[in-house]
């Protein structure tokens, strides 16, 4: 799983059928210390996340399809959780 901070969203009307009406958020990936890594991705949101929130991202196709109960949806990145706090062992 990856973590990230929601930076914005995408509006699209012409797209693959699976994405009709789906909420697509742009996420800046962050590492375990919460710092942005410079990478970003677009993920389908099922957790109700909004801009500025730290989120948990599932970034693997089979798991993503399982979230939607589909066997052939072209989806890979899904926001599956909103993170309250991350604690890193300082050792």
């Amino acid at each position: 799983m990856k973590t990230g901070i929601v930076a914005g969203d995408i509006v699209s009307t012409i797209n693959h059928g699976f994405y009709d009406g789906r909420k697509m958020l742009i996420v800046d990936l962050v590492d375990a210390t919460g710092r942005r890594t410079g990478k970003e991705l677009v993920a389908v949101d099922v957790a109700g996340a909004g801009p500025g929130e730290t989120v948990l991202i599932l970034d693997e196709g089979n798991g993503a399809r399982q979230v939607f109960g589909s066997t052939d949806a072209p989806v890979r990145s899904v926001i599956v959780g909103i993170i309250d706090r991350m604690d890193l062992d300082p050792a």
Partner: peptide, 20 residues
């Protein structure tokens, strides 16, 4: 058909990008 040798595909066309 989906069983084709493709490694990148356009999924949709963007109307707007909102950056917070």
């Amino acid at each position: 058909p989906w069983f084709v040798p493709v490694d990148h595909a356009i999924i949709g066309i963007i109307d707007d990008v909102h950056v917070a």
